[in-house]
Amino acid sequence: MASSSVPADGHGDHTRRDFLMVATGALGAVGAAAVAWPFINNLNPAADTLALASVEVNVKPIEVGQAITVSWRGKPVFIRHRTAKDIKEAEAVPMSELPDPQTDNARVTDTAKKVRPEWLIMIGVCTHLGCVPLGNKPGQDKGPYGGWYCPCHGSAYDTSGRIRKGPAPLNLAIPQYLFLSDSLVRIG
């Protein structure tokens, strides 16, 4: 600034004036953002909402071929005791047929890395727009792939809960879970 050729009285010193304007504006913008942040962050989940972290479920009464729905974080979680046929079908699907490729094994592994193909535990929320798919209760439409079918917009899932057809982009999500014993599972 000192090397500027304009007179020292400041008249016509556009460079200096511009610098002050930009610096003031930038500082003002930072201030506005700092004030806006608490208002925006205020809408994020509160500590008590975050604290609803886990549920424990006794899976012993669930017979082969049965499924139950439990509530976790306000969402339904499907627990299906799969039949040998379910498992075989799920494992036989070539990856190239899947919109969201994932092996069946990867979907039945708990946080201790133990694989239990008979237990499929997933969040029962369609990855399209959040409806609860049908197929968890006896007599409900399981869709063309024998897993689950979302009546809202027609997404169909297979016996591993993977998306096969319809507008949903992803497989049904797998929550973190851990088998504390052969009959007790902790979700979350």
Binding site: N44, P45, H128, L129, G130, C131
Partner: peptide
């Protein structure tokens, strides 16, 4: 369904939906 529309936004979609909900659902 309507709030889940925003989950279609790439990268930040899910965070935006959680923010709209103020929770996990």
């Amino acid at each position: 369904v309507i709030t889940s529309l925003f989950s279609a936004i790439p990268v930040v979609g899910d965070a935006v939906v959680t923010w709209l909900w103020g929770g996990f659902s």
